[in-house]
Amino acid sequence: MSKAVIPGMIARKTGHIINIGSTAGKEVYPKGNVYCASKYAVDALTKGMRIDLLPHGIKVTQIAPGMAETEFRSVRFGGDGPVRHRFTKVWTRCGRRTSPNWCTM
């Protein structure tokens, strides 16, 4: 995908690529081997692309969300089980808005 859009951005000398990483790309956690490896790869890819593309005026950013109430979360925590409710409760109490709609505000 980046290969497709980057040439146009280079020609226009502007652009912004935003990769969605994760906190799993910063620290590993048990039983998250492959996922963490992938997200570490996103981290490295972002940094590499940034070095290469910054001279062309293209910004490369990584967003590393923590806990958020997305579909991935329900997959990981086993649907609407008790873990999910505990998670939501704790994080709402912490004052965090965990909905992706809030995250994009």
């Binding site: 995908m1 969605i20 997305t70 579909e71 991935f72 909905s99 709609n101 995250c103 994009t104």
Partner: peptide, 17 residues
């Protein structure tokens, strides 16, 4: 703006935004 994975979660929220 090109958004990948806009079917749910962050992608969908970003698209709406």
């Amino acid at each position: 703006i090109l958004i990948t994975g806009a079917t749910s979660g962050f992608g969908e929220a970003t698209a709406r935004r």
